[in-house]
């Protein structure tokens, strides 16, 4: 049995197994810390920074921070919420997010965070960088305009030999998500479906299906992101 430790989030005490990731322990206790790149039980990438919290007064990403005794965590403070809102706004202006024309709209985690933080307009100017849509693979559209570089697909969608279907190409401003054409030619139904599911935005889309859930019944139409976690609050 591993060691239990006590720590606080926003002044309230919680308990968890020492060494487990703060974001997961928080979620199990009904405390929502937003994530975009994190996926439970997958090695964290710490790339999106949306889970930024303050641990003993220092900015840390909750998806890469193991819990320990005497940790004082700040989560839902106006300062942190504004930092997160700024990150959402940055992602919106960096890519080309035309929500009205996006199949993921209503089920998109980035958009849902925009709703949560009531983003009426980003504080940054729009970049309008041109990026291509890659439709070469038989089951998947790769809409590069919407990728937020979370690396979930690269880390999670692999064939039976452990080879990733997705990869990054380029650096900095020229960074883009790509799909291995040869591997993707034989991707299974299930894996293609899984790829669309784990992509937090509408960058990976299944071909031949779309807009299947009516407006009003989509994941974030009626309830904010994180409410499924917050109902666990004791």
């Amino acid at each position: 049995m591993s060691e239990k430790v006590k720590f606080t989030i926003d002044g309230k005490e919680y308990e968890g197994e020492k060494g487990r990731l703060l974001v997961d322990v928080a979620a199990e206790n009904g405390v929502y810390i937003p994530v975009l790149c994190h996926w439970k039980d997958v090695k964290p990438a710490g790339s999106c920074r949306i889970c930024t919290v303050k641990v003993n007064d220092r900015y840390m990403t909750a998806c890469t921070t193991p819990i320990d005794a005497n940790m004082t965590v700040e989560n839902k403070t106006p300062e942190l919420e504004d930092i997160r809102k700024a990150i959402v706004e940055m992602l919106f202006v960096e890519g080309n997010h035309f929500c009205p024309a996006c199949e993921k709209s209503g089920d998109c985690d980035l958009q849902a965070l925009g709703y949560l933080y009531q983003m009426m307009v980003p504080r940054f100017p729009y970049a309008f960088e041109r990026r291509e849509l890659d439709a070469k693979s038989p089951k998947i559209f790769l809409e590069k305009n919407r990728c937020i570089f979370c690396k979930r697909c690269i880390r999670m969608i692999k064939d039976d030999k452990g080879r990733s279907f997705f990869a990054f190409k380029g650096r900095g401003k020229h960074l883009e998500i790509t799909i291995d054409e040869k591997l993707a030619a034989n991707i299974s139904e299930e894996l293609a479906q899984e790829a669309m599911k784990i992509c937090p935005v509408g960058a990976i889309l299944r071909k031949e299906v779309g807009f299947s859930t009516p407006i009003g019944q989509r994941k974030y139409d009626k309830v904010p992101i994180g409410s499924d976690i917050e109902v666990l609050q004791k």
């Binding site: 009205p100 024309a101 009426m120 307009v121 980003p122 729009y126 309008f128």
Partner: peptide, 19 residues
Amino acid sequence: ISVGECAIMGGLPAMRNGI
């Protein structure tokens, strides 16, 4: 007041941006 996506971020017409 900016009303709607097109006023706020260009909207679908802005899909031509970059071309």
